[in-house]
Deep mutational scan, measured.
Amino acid sequence: MDALKSAGRALIRSPSLAKQSWGGGGRHRKLPENWTDTRETLLEGMLFSLKYLGMTLVEQPKGEELSAAAIKRIVATAKASGKKLQKVTLKVSPRGIILTDNLTNQLIENVSIYRISYCTADKMHDKVFAYIAQSQHNQSLECHAFLCTKRKMAQAVTLTVAQAFKVAFEFWQVSKEEKEKRDKASQEGGDVLGARQDCTPPLKSLVATGNLLDLEETAKAPLSTVSANTTNMDEVPRPQALSGSSVVWELDDGLDEAFSRLAQSRTNPQVLDTGLTAQDMHYAQCLSPVDWDKPDSSGTEQDDLFSF
């Protein structure tokens, strides 16, 4: 819950932080000083300027060897085509990944977070970031790969997607708890209302004896509580940590079903599988986004697919 609360507080303090972009060759504004600060901008989305290598189908939802083989196929196909790589912007948030063309600003792909089953910074092609997700059109699994400016960037994108998945799962947990509370309150309110109706004398007997209905007592009954809980029953509950912020979080049926399955089948359902080692994760978390744009010590960066 700490990640969720800190993310909400950060967004309320400075929503404009989320509009910064990394990996864009110096076009961005001043960047936060450390990885923790940038992680807090996830709610509205972190932007990464990358190059799209392509996509291939895979048979399993996750796995280092599986993704490595898929990336190898994608890279080989991209090299064989001889075409310049498409420059894209990857927007990562707890909602998922939005992929747009840098030149036309046209939407290429919009992947809900619950469809993503794996992401990684490839070991062999260490400047490549990739994720595996279920197609929104059918049940097939797709591996999408992107060329980053350097290994640090690939690791940073991988960690960002993993963190977005974690925050999304926490949102789901909060929403589920809130819905259970509202359902319980609604049920209790309905029981109270039913009890009051059972003990209320029939209207005919009131008229016969000349008694008047006590409207004041009726007004004191917990009807307002019942209506408050039943009027918006169809509205999706939102985490309290975000009250007053500009973010509107809505959970669709697909996300609810997917996270429910994860909660039942996995020990740590909030953790998205990645190909990063503990050492890689520690190294990337210690980086400032400013470091992502620094040239690798191995030599001059080449803006070309064939540089790796």
Rank of each mutant, 00 (worst) to 15 (best):
A3F: 10
L4I: 10
G8C: 01
R9D: 14
R13E: 15
R13A: 11
R13W: 08
R13G: 14
S14H: 09
P15W: 06
S16E: 07
A18F: 10
S21H: 07
G26Y: 10
H28L: 14
H28G: 13
N34K: 11
N34I: 11
R39P: 09
E40L: 05
E40M: 08
T41N: 09
T41Y: 05
L43I: 15
E44F: 12
G45M: 08
M46G: 04
K51C: 01
Y52M: 11
L53H: 00
G54A: 00
G54M: 01
L57D: 07
L57P: 13
E59P: 13
P61W: 13
P61V: 14
K62D: 05
G63N: 14
L66G: 04
S67Y: 00
A68W: 01
A69W: 13
A70H: 01
A70D: 02
I71T: 06
R73C: 13
I74M: 01
I74C: 12
V75Y: 00
A78W: 04
A80D: 11
A80S: 15
G82P: 01
L85C: 01
Q86V: 09
Q86C: 10
K87F: 10
T89E: 10
K91T: 13
G96Q: 08
I97M: 15
I97G: 00
L99C: 10
L103H: 04
T104P: 04
N110G: 15
N110I: 04
I113L: 02
R115Q: 13
I116C: 14
S117N: 02
Y118D: 02
C119I: 02
T120V: 03
H125L: 00
K127M: 00
F129D: 00
A130D: 01
A130H: 00
A130G: 14
I132M: 10
I132H: 01
I132Y: 02
A133P: 03
A133F: 01
S135Q: 06
H137P: 10
H137N: 15
Q139E: 12
Q139W: 04
S140T: 15
C143A: 01
C143M: 01
A145G: 13
C148E: 05
T149D: 05
K150A: 06
M153S: 13
M153K: 08
A156F: 14
A156Y: 12
T158D: 04
T158C: 14
L159P: 00
T160D: 02
A162W: 03
A162K: 04
Q163W: 10
A164Q: 02
F165N: 03
K166F: 08
V167R: 12
W172Y: 03
W172G: 03
V174A: 01
V174D: 14
S175L: 02
E177H: 05
K179M: 11
E180K: 14
K184S: 14
S186H: 01
S186Q: 07
S186V: 02
S186T: 05
Q187R: 06
Q187W: 02
G190H: 07
D191T: 09
D191P: 08
V192L: 02
V192E: 05
V192R: 02
R196Y: 02
D198Q: 04
D198T: 07
C199W: 08
L206I: 11
V207C: 09
N211C: 04
D214G: 14
L215H: 14
E217P: 15
A219T: 04
A219D: 15
K220Y: 13
L223Q: 11
L223V: 15
L223C: 09
S224H: 09
T225W: 04
T225H: 08
V226W: 04
S227H: 09
T230A: 04
T231S: 14
N232A: 05
D234F: 04
D234H: 04
V236N: 02
Q240R: 13
Q240G: 04
Q240Y: 12
A241S: 15
L242H: 10
L242A: 13
S243H: 04
V247L: 09
V248R: 10
D252S: 06
D252L: 04
G254D: 08
L255R: 05
L255W: 06
D256V: 04
E257G: 08
E257M: 09
A258P: 04
A258W: 05
S260F: 03
R261C: 02
R261W: 08
S265Y: 07
S265V: 08
N268I: 01
N268Q: 09
P269C: 02
Q270V: 06
Q270C: 01
V271D: 10
T274L: 02
T274S: 04
T274E: 06
G275T: 04
T277D: 07
Q279C: 09
M281T: 08
Y283C: 14
C286A: 10
D291Y: 15
W292V: 02
D293M: 11
S297D: 05
S297P: 09
S297W: 08
G299I: 10
T300C: 10
T300I: 08
E301I: 08
Q302N: 04
D303E: 11
D304E: 09
S307T: 14
S307H: 08
S307Y: 09
